[in-house]
């Protein structure tokens, strides 16, 4: 077992499926006996209403014991910092309640993002626990916020060098170094094959590579149609029989758009694609995660 956890990042535009993919891959590894944690950008109550792991503890207690989901509230993290620096409770409370402190943390550019990254690093280096009872994790999945906020979070480690003169400035340089190393961090950009998602993913991958030295390990094309695998010959045959079926015409029109977008994506990001087919129906969230997880084998092999 390595002395630090690998960080796996799912990033991309809002609504492309980052949370579902993070949970699906985490679940797959938890079932295989590895200790995993998903750090999500959604507050936990909100996450519970997007995709849930409901029923896992009953159906697979071993996997449930291996799988943790945490959310860092940046405000809590900063409060923790204050408490550490001012161990006397009433002093810490006076600082936290003061307008001086509140106005400063609200407006200080990137402070909360900076603290989020620092916490992620501590968790990966096993200098901090997700919570008291948590084990050391083998894999840490970061279900990143949507693109703009994700990049500004990474940027916060650097921009802080220009502003900070206190104890945080030193941490900034270390943090910037930590988050620009693909031996510790595996980045999986996620896109659906639509105009905006493809354009944003291409832009994001370029920024990651150029500004943060983080090349993507693979790009995930999420929710594709089964026709994404079809050969040109098969497509032509389908087109011939489509005249009699509105359904088939619709599926073909969309599949052709998808193929065009996939080509744009692959020219733009030049990394290997992993396609995840749109699941056609599921009884529970666990079913859905299971089904999605089947398409993620190529990702598991990279970790």
């Amino acid at each position: 077992m390595s002395v630090q956890s690998k960080i796996v990042v799912f990033c991309g535009k809002g609504g492309v499926g980052k949370t579902t993919l993070s949970l699906a891959l985490a679940l797959k590894h938890a079932r295989a006996g590895r200790k995993v944690v998903v750090v999500t950008s959604h507050p936990i109550p909100e996450l519970a209403v997007s995709v849930s792991l409901e029923g896992l503890a009953a159906s697979d207690p071993a996997a449930a014991a291996n799988l943790f989901v945490v959310h860092f509230d940046p405000r809590d993290l900063l409060a923790e910092l204050v408490r550490k620096n001012f161990p006397v409770e009433w002093v810490a409370k006076a600082v936290l309640d003061s307008h001086i402190y509140k106005s400063l943390i609200e407006v200080a550019p990137g402070l909360k993002e900076f603290y989020f990254l620092a916490r992620l690093q501590q968790l990966a280096e096993r200098k901090a626990k997700a919570h008291a009872a948590a084990p050391d994790f083998d894999l840490l999945f970061w279900d990143a916020p949507s693109m703009g906020h994700f990049l500004s979070t990474l940027h916060s480690a650097r921009s802080f060098e220009t502003f900070l003169s206190g104890p945080l400035a030193v941490a900034g340089a270390d943090l910037a170094h930590f988050f620009s190393n693909t031996s510790r961090i595996t980045v999986f950009p996620v896109a659906t094959l639509e105009e905006m998602a493809v354009a944003e993913t291409v832009e994001m991958c370029r920024a990651l590579e150029k500004d943060y030295n983080l090349a993507s390990a693979a790009v995930i094309m999420n929710m594709v149609s089964p026709l994404s695998k079809a050969t040109d010959k098969q497509m032509a045959e389908l087109r011939a029989s489509a005249s009699s079926s509105a359904v088939l015409r619709f599926a073909l029109e969309r599949a052709e758009l998808e193929r065009k977008r996939a080509a744009e994506l692959l020219i733009g990001v030049s990394t290997r694609p992993v396609a995840v087919e749109r699941v056609k129906g599921w009884r529970s969230d666990l079913d859905l995660l299971e089904e999605v997880g089947k398409s993620l084998q190529p990702l598991s092999e990279m970790l």
């Binding site: 910092l81 204050v82 620096n85 001012f86 002093v91 006076a94 600082v95 003061s98 001086i100 402190y101 106005s103 400063l104 407006v107 200080a108 402070l111 502003f163 900070l164 003169s165 206190g166 104890p167 945080l168 400035a169």
Partner: peptide, 24 residues
């Protein structure tokens, strides 16, 4: 206020605090 200010400043660094105050 001064006491609190000094504490927050020691935490965040004088440079950042000055910049923010000036901006406000």
């Amino acid at each position: 206020s001064m006491d609190l200010y000094a504490r927050v400043e020691s935490l965040l660094g004088a440079n950042l605090v000055q910049q923010v105050l000036d901006f406000y």
